Computed example of a mutant assay.
Amino acid sequence: MADPSFFPVATSLSFNEVASLCGLTLPEGADPARRVEGAAPLETAGANDAAYMDNPKYVAALAGTSAGLCFVSPRFADRVPAGTVALVTPAPYHAFAKLLATFHPQALRPASMFGSAGVAPGAFVHATARLEADVTVDPGAVIGPGAEIGAGSIIGPQAVIGPQVRIGRDCSIGAGSTLQSALIGNRVIIHPGVRIGQDGFGFAMSPKGHMKVPQVGRVIIQDDVEIGANSCIDRGASRDTVIGEGTKIDNLVQIGHNCVIGRHCVIVSQVGIAGSSTLEDFVVLGGQVGLAGHLTIGMGAQIAAQSGVAGDVPRGARYGGYPAQPALSWARESALLKQLVAKRGKTTGGDESA
């Protein structure tokens, strides 16, 4: 259950309204007028709450839940206890997310910390900057010369928007973020502490020293992108760094100069992507994946957490390991290594120093 101090419930819904919202059908015998007043995990949900379940790890929690209503996949529908109404769907988590968004619309994107639209006292907006209607600029934020910000966008406290930066409509720029040399689309969420558009790591190296190469590209972030706290996206050197529409980037991610990230990619925390690499659409990188520079990761490819990628990855492939390789080969090698270690332990009597 959400803490109402931080996330008050905006409404309540009847069982019938919940089913209609999610495109589902109530089972026979369910009371369509019964109300749902909140959403909660299986373990803590009460009679007026909705929950969801689609993972075998939570079968016991499902059996013991007191939730009034539960979104559940077909294979677990017969495990729902008698006191809970089952809304059967192939995508329980998606249905639960729709309900959460209805109950807590204010949690969908960061809000202003200090109040309504307008420029708060203590903020600085350059005289040549252009702000459309309903832009919120929180205290301590700085908007540089020539910057443009679209209607409904929120600039958090201490954020710095550099000269000529363009920010679209209904964006949220988190506290303490810095944006320069960047064009930002609509409905982009940038969490606190993000750095966008700083120099890429470019040097012409020689035995006499390393000459700095001017980084004269931009960062282009398309619509509906979300960037997690303290992530860094370097501007391009000779071409633009691009983040494609709908891509979701977790906290503490580094994206180097000239990288092109496709549409609807998912990049989990602590990933590092070296310069001039390309991710095609719908690529997924697990946590702490490292990519060498000038690589292409094909559309729909998935890379397991902590993998080190040194070469191109084909479309739709599943890779893992260090260096990364097809997942099946990686699993076989890991199993073989385990067998060899076990065999060595037997031949040495368990004495690894032998």
Score class of each variant (00 low, 15 high):
K248A: 01
S231Y: 01
V253Q: 04
I196V: 12
R239T: 14
R235P: 12
I249R: 03
F203T: 13
R195D: 00
I249L: 06
I189C: 03
C232W: 06
D234A: 14
P214E: 02
T241R: 07
C232I: 08
T241S: 07
Q215M: 12
M205D: 10
G246Y: 02
I220Y: 07
G202A: 07
V213W: 05
G217V: 12
M205S: 15
R239S: 15
N186P: 03
D223Y: 07
F201C: 09
P214Q: 02
D224H: 02
V194T: 05
I189D: 01
I249G: 00
V242D: 04
I255G: 06
N186L: 03
K212A: 09
Q215T: 08
D223Q: 04
A204E: 12
V219N: 06
I233R: 08
K208F: 11
V194G: 01
P207N: 13
P207D: 05
V213K: 04
N186C: 10
T241F: 09
R239H: 13
R235N: 07
D199F: 01
E226M: 04
I243A: 09
G193R: 00
D240K: 15
A237Q: 11
Q198V: 07
K248W: 01
I190Q: 01
N186Y: 07
E226F: 03
I190A: 08
I249P: 06
S231K: 04
V194F: 02
K212D: 02
N230E: 00
I196L: 14
V253L: 03
S231D: 00
I220G: 12
R235K: 15
Q222M: 14
N230F: 01
F203Y: 15
V225W: 06
S231N: 00
Q198A: 06
A237W: 02
G244R: 07
I249V: 05
D224W: 03
T241W: 10
V194D: 04
H191K: 00
V213A: 13
G197P: 11
D199M: 09
G193Q: 00
H210P: 14
D199K: 04
I249E: 03
V213P: 09
M211L: 14
E226Q: 00
A204G: 13
D199I: 01
A237M: 10
A237E: 02
G197Y: 10
I227C: 05
E245T: 13
M211S: 12
D224E: 08
E245D: 13
P207C: 05
M211Q: 15
G244N: 05
V242W: 13
E245G: 00
N186D: 14
I196R: 12
Q198F: 10
R195V: 09
E245A: 05
Q215G: 02
G217I: 14
T241M: 13
G197W: 02
V188S: 10
R195S: 13
I196P: 10
S231T: 06
V225R: 03
V253E: 08
D240Q: 08
H191E: 04
P214W: 04
G202R: 10
G200K: 01
F201N: 10
V219D: 12
R218H: 15
I249W: 01
G193M: 01
